[in-house]
Amino acid sequence: MLIDEILGWIKLNLKDLIQIVLFPGIAFILIFAVAATWFERKYLAHSMLRIGPLHTGRVAGWLQIIADFIKLTGKEVITPRNVNVFLFNLLPVLSVCTSAIAVAFIPFSSDWIIYEGNGISLLLFFAAASLTPYITLMLGWISNNKYSIIGAMRVSYVYISAEIPAFLAAMGVAIMAGSFSLIDIVEAQSRIPFLIPQILGFIVFFIAFLAEVERVPFDIPVAEQEIVAGWRTEYSGINFGVTMMMDYIPLCTWTLLFVTLYLGGYQGPLIFASQTLSNFFWILLKFSLVIVVILLFRSVFPRLRMDQTLRLTWKYLTPAAFLNLIITAIIAYYYPDLFGLIGAS
């Protein structure tokens, strides 16, 4: 019967379903967005000598985020005059979906990955992650607001200028590992993470990925002191909540990529009985540490200006990434034995 067929299909694809729905799929990303919001509020509050959310929920105000979300759903959704209502309401949801796709290519263990990508998962990650700025651009454009348009233009500037150095830096890693597959890249770091041999690429990628995820000091597209809220100015109610969530999903996927490329991904000593569980532990630990480091930037640094960001990315990061790529390529061509020394192929 039909039900039996469905059950049989579920049984066959149980692992894929768990991966897509629970970990590292939808549930993980949503929980991360909530937890990161809570942690950011709490952490920044402490850096400012405040306490932060306190009362809602018994422990450290953790329910406050949920309460805020419920409040947002209860608010009126205002659609501005003369906009395409369908696109205006669709695009926030679409942007969340597209930016979440990229997590499918991140390996959480050698056998725990949603889609292996036929050995080119690094390229597929960049392809998927680059969809988001187009949608953000459209979001700002159709909002029919001056601030939104300025914000949308800034999005395109920042993304294009930051994506090129990030991609070039990642190519250095790919040459070193001899593969575009993220699993192969992680396996190549079994002895020593690429942080050390690829130190120049590491720095370039770190700065460029801060710009990609719109964290301070590169949160130029939503610069609230200058252009109210950038491309999300006109959004209200639950649409606003969704666009806020969109801040955290690229942060999640790009940080995972950063950990995978340079910090050895899921590699680490065996601490649980199961190899898979141990791998989960290590990647999540590295991921959390990087997030903790990044979140405090907001409390330390001012925002850079648009022209300064462009000067930084085009004048310094892109040449540095090229230099890194060329050095890696020369070594890979003439002295392939050097890579063997550190464990890479």
Partner: peptide
């Protein structure tokens, strides 16, 4: 002026 430069600088509340 810290707040005006953007980000969410801690120094304003210090």
């Amino acid at each position: 002026i810290a707040e005006a430069c953007g980000g969410y600088p801690a120094i304003f509340l210090w």
